[in-house]
Simulated assay, not measured.
Amino acid sequence: MTFETDVRDLYDAEERRGAVTDRPGAVVERAGAVVRQCAPDGGWNAVVWSDLREDTADAEIAAQVAYFAGAGVPRFEWKLYGHDRPADLGERLGAAGFVAEPAETLMVARTAEVGAEPPALPDGVRIEEVTDAAGVDLMMEAHRLAFDEDHPGLREQLLGRLEAAPQTLMALVALADGRPVSAARMEIRPGGSFAGLWGGGTAPAWRGKGIYRALVAHRAAEAARRGIPYLQVDASPDSRPILHRLGFHALTTTTPYIWTNPTTT
């Protein structure tokens, strides 16, 4: 066995088969051969794990479409990993009306190996932890600059987490002379082996200056303080080489397949 195989198996067991809800009001349940989250109040609806065979896959896909359509959700995601079976599951999802979004790479690092020597920040840049609505608004502005799009649903999700379960979230914003230029968060499952790094994005004019790496190191230090052994990222092609240099290993790919409810559009 290798690091990649061992840790991928642990990730599947804890974060997929043993998934827990990411927000108040959502439900995570095992339903036959899948684990799914349903959040009909506007949260993330998804199939996060499946154990399908060639002779059962199409019927299971249809059953999940019927379930989420019956719940009235506008869309749901089938989070497909590169090692999921059957091997043609992506094609079967496409035939059932799902649309694939760009693939990312599931990368994991040992927490102790990341962030030991955080890079120096540029002059005038500081990192602040977000604890209230004003800080979340700064994060949203940083995301808008980084990704050229708004994330209204994310704002409400972060506010809800900070209010209901602040121990499960670390949110950060990087400020340059008081203006937001980058933001990121870490999602924490108490007692779990993985801390998830999400949302890292930097305004174009501030890229290549070590801010992204500093945000990774800052979160790694907190994860180490909490005794969490691994960090996990769904890495874009842009961030993958940076994370590789920081000690992250590529375990598999992950592709969001999105089904949109025709009755709610």
Rank of each mutant, 00 (worst) to 15 (best):
T2P: 00
E4F: 01
T5R: 14
R8F: 14
R8G: 08
D9R: 14
D9G: 11
Y11K: 08
A13Y: 10
A13E: 15
E15D: 12
R17F: 13
V20Q: 13
R23F: 01
A26L: 03
V27E: 11
V27H: 05
V28I: 10
R30P: 04
C38W: 00
G43C: 02
A46M: 12
A46K: 05
L52F: 15
E54P: 03
D55S: 15
D55V: 14
D58N: 14
A59W: 12
A62S: 15
A63M: 07
V65G: 09
A71Q: 07
G72V: 00
P74L: 07
P74E: 14
E77V: 14
W78I: 04
W78Y: 12
W78E: 06
G82S: 10
G82T: 10
R85K: 14
R85Y: 08
L89C: 13
L93S: 12
A95C: 06
V99A: 15
A100P: 06
E101Q: 15
E104Y: 04
M107V: 01
V114N: 00
A116G: 15
A116W: 03
E117S: 12
P118C: 06
P119R: 08
L121H: 03
D123T: 10
G124N: 09
G124E: 10
V130Y: 00
D132Y: 06
A134T: 13
A134N: 09
G135Y: 01
D137S: 14
L138M: 12
L138P: 00
L138A: 15
L145K: 02
D150L: 08
H151F: 15
G153L: 03
G160S: 00
G160Y: 01
L162T: 01
T168A: 13
L169V: 12
M170K: 09
A171F: 00
A174F: 02
D177V: 02
G178M: 08
A184D: 04
A184N: 05
R185L: 12
E187Q: 13
R189S: 10
P190C: 11
P190I: 11
G191C: 10
F194V: 10
L197W: 04
G200Y: 02
R207P: 04
Y212P: 05
A214I: 03
R219A: 01
A221M: 07
E222M: 10
A223C: 09
A223F: 05
P229Q: 09
L231P: 02
L231D: 03
Q232E: 12
V233E: 03
I242V: 15
L246E: 09
L246R: 00
H249V: 06
H249S: 09
A250G: 09
A250L: 02
I258V: 15
W259V: 00
T260H: 07
P262S: 12
T263H: 13
T264C: 02
